[in-house]
Design a protein around this nucleic acid. Structure first.
Lengths: 251, 251
DNA sequence: TCTATTATTTCGGTGTACCTAAACTTTGAA
DNA sequence: TTCAAAGTTTAGGTACACCGAAATAATAGA
């Protein structure tokens, strides 16, 4: 029932379980969790049993792992912490885009709720972090934006980058170097195939370095929000038991 | 020799050992360390052995504990972290005087050196925290101010409060309520005796609530810097092996 | 100087979060 | 339908930072 002295490992496990389903539906498996946390499979089995005892996950042996409503609440609180911290480090302490992740990773376990809310207020309660990821509010609600992974789009699709995965600093520097950031406008030219890469162009004069080829790996780290039709924000309630499902463009 | 994965317990032990000798000379004993850390004596014995193995303290069984040069360097780094964090929380995030200690206590183990230096720069490299305690610079040097504990002064002594011990939030609120803060000007009227209290007056019109009696406990938390003669700052090098000795007024 | 008190250390044991290796399920290819 | 490969859990073990109780050293008073 209660998960009293919120150890930072528990917070990490729950956060990774949540993150896995943030942009797709398949629940996480034991080994995927182990890989993402950088621990042995056996450590995951043991820890998942503990998370289950504390009511944070549902789990049957040899099956994937799901967050309970309580686990989801904790996960969203951690995601809020992480993304607010990243935003704060960039805006208030002059961190560069690619430096913030590791610092936020440490800080998210150490700061108090009071600290988080002060920070949020000082920043004007932002709803996106520097990578374009949505920041849950204090009640765990998230503002969603219609978006697709670049490597899942057809040629001709135009929009602006709404989100960039923040796990590889080298990638972030590379993207910055070639002029791609959150809100950069792009047109998809050639369809991506694994190993073949993705052709894109910058419709904006400001970024006009002509067509560009991105590797599949890079394309998979970029999300494009369509222009027109769904400009921004369908809000979903996430506090209760309902899992977040990313907006699915049915065009 | 090396104290590689700087566990936060090690940091706490070293910090407390240092703090004990910051305002007087007697080295700390095993049991005093245990009390201040809130752990059992047996835990201290064990941990001190480890600190000795890592070259952070000198210690013979049944004797008091001294920091080595290396230990002092680590302690001063932690003190710098703590005091810069307190200053930052007050100045940038609107924390009140009495809220900062616990938050800083957590954060000092989690933030990177990069974070600390950004913060220091943003604050204009302050040399005092909100309690008036000196902040060591990045090389571990401290700017000292001549000062005495209020309960060690004779009647007639006049000066301004230069430092207030930050360990009791209730005390801080009380002092604020009766108009005493860092830089408040005071005159000592009646000599303190244990259990009897200390008589003081505010020479400043702004604080003129007349003579006041403070308990010995409160008086022991207040430091008075003399006016005139020694206005501010004799600087001592603290990086190497030399322990800090508080300025001693020979008048 | 001897003893009683106090201070400190040693000893055996706890919980957490890891690990490797072995045992066990599940899955999918033949 | 079977069985080997892949995925998962169990078993046994480590390091860390604690604990209380027992043993030992220091100290101070008679």
């Amino acid at each position: 029932m209660k998960h009293s002295p919120n150890s930072s490992s528990i917070e990490d496990y729950v956060k990774v379980i949540y993150a896995y389903t943030e942009w797709q539906d398949k629940p996480i498996t034991s080994s995927a969790l182990a890989t993402r946390l950088g621990v042995a499979n056996s450590s995951v089995s043991e820890m998942v049993r503990k998370l289950k005892d504390q009511g944070l996950v549902d789990h049957e042996p040899y099956s994937p792992i799901h967050l309970t409503a309580e686990g989801l609440t904790l996960a969203l609180a951690m995601v809020r912490r992480h993304r607010l911290l990243e935003t704060y480090l960039v805006r208030e302490l002059g961190y560069s885009w690619d430096e913030v992740h590791d610092e936020a990773e440490q800080l998210e376990h150490a700061v108090s709720d009071h600290f988080i809310e002060r920070m949020s207020a000082k920043l004007g309660h932002p709803s996106r972090d520097p990578h374009g990821d949505p920041i849950p509010d204090a009640q765990g609600r998230i503002t969603m934006v219609p978006s697709h992974r670049l490597d899942e789009l057809d040629p001709g699709h135009t929009g602006r980058i709404s989100r960039i995965s923040d796990h590889d600093p080298a990638l972030l520097r590379h993207l910055e170097a070639i002029g791609i950031g959150v809100d950069t406008r792009l047109t998809v030219l050639g369809q991506p195939r694994f190993g073949a890469g993705l052709q894109i162009a910058f419709p904006d004069a400001t970024n006009d370095v002509g067509p560009l080829t991105l590797s599949d790996e890079v394309a998979a780290s970029l999300w494009l929000a369509s222009e027109g039709a769904h400009p921004d924000c369908s809000v979903q309630e996430l506090t209760g038991g309902s899992l977040m499902t990313p907006y699915s463009d049915a065009q």
